[in-house]
Computed example of a mutant assay.
Amino acid sequence: MSLSVEIGDITRVEADAVVNAANSLLLGGGGVDGAIHAAAGPRLLEACRRLRNTTHRDGLTVGDAVATPAFDLPASWVIHTVGPNLHRGQDDPALLASCFARSLDVAAELDVRSIAFPAVSAGAYGWPVPDVARIAVVTTRNWLAEHSEAELRDVRFVVVDERVEHAFGTALTT
């Protein structure tokens, strides 16, 4: 089992699944969400619209996750998760932990062997990077320990810069 952090562009990561820090509408946005939608092409937006018209009419709730094909990305799947927005008073760490755990649940349902996560909620949603890193790593380690039968073998945190890499590196070594 490999658990690591790297600086990079999540839209170029070769993994079975990449996690999208989506908004609840699932229709694209800024940051990671906008980059993934742009790189995956218009079929991703069509797939998200189908989800909105069927199983997720009210959007995706904070802390939940759902998958679509990845289309033009090098991954096979995009797992969309909605992180808590600290600016909106969504300050419960359990909601953030749920983003990582639910994404891993969806990955297991898809028999994913490798997955790449961004720093969910650390950007525009205002969560402090060290908190996101700690919650992400602890949740992922706990999930992996409880699901040893899962096919998942490679979990990467793909982050935007050295500051975020350092926070995740610190969380991985504690």
Rank of each mutant, 00 (worst) to 15 (best):
S2A: 10
S4H: 10
V5P: 09
I7S: 00
D9I: 10
D9K: 10
I10M: 08
I10P: 05
T11L: 13
R12P: 05
V13C: 09
E14G: 07
E14F: 04
V18M: 07
V19G: 05
V19F: 07
A22P: 02
A22C: 08
N23V: 12
S24P: 12
S24M: 09
L27M: 13
G28W: 02
G28I: 09
G29L: 00
V32A: 03
V32Y: 01
D33M: 02
A35K: 06
I36N: 06
H37W: 01
A38N: 08
G41P: 08
P42C: 00
P42Y: 00
P42M: 01
L44A: 11
L44T: 08
L44S: 11
L45G: 09
E46S: 11
A47F: 03
A47C: 06
A47Q: 03
C48F: 02
C48S: 15
C48G: 09
L51D: 06
L51Q: 07
R52E: 09
R52A: 15
R52N: 14
T54G: 00
T54Q: 00
T55N: 12
R57P: 09
D58V: 03
G59C: 14
L60K: 08
V62E: 06
V62W: 03
G63A: 10
D64T: 10
D64C: 11
D64A: 15
D64F: 03
V66P: 08
A67P: 15
T68H: 05
T68A: 09
A70V: 10
D72R: 14
P74V: 12
S76Y: 01
W77V: 13
V78S: 13
V78T: 13
V78Q: 12
I79K: 00
I79Q: 00
H80K: 09
H80S: 12
T81A: 13
T81R: 04
G83I: 11
G83C: 09
P84H: 06
P84T: 02
G89D: 05
Q90Y: 02
A97D: 01
A97P: 07
A101L: 05
R102Q: 13
L104D: 01
L104W: 01
D105P: 10
A108F: 03
L110I: 11
L110E: 05
D111Q: 12
V112F: 11
V112T: 15
R113C: 14
S114R: 14
S114V: 14
A116S: 15
A116W: 05
A119P: 04
S121D: 04
Y125F: 15
Y125L: 12
P128T: 04
P128D: 07
V129H: 00
V132N: 07
A133E: 10
A133Y: 11
R134L: 10
R134W: 07
A136G: 14
V137I: 08
V137R: 04
V138M: 05
V138H: 07
T140A: 06
T140I: 08
T140H: 04
T140Q: 04
R141E: 06
N142K: 15
W143S: 09
L144E: 00
A145C: 10
A145N: 15
H147C: 03
E149I: 04
A150Q: 03
A150Y: 02
R153T: 11
V155G: 07
F157S: 04
V158A: 02
E165H: 15
A167N: 02
G169F: 03
T170W: 01
A171M: 13
A171N: 10
T174R: 12
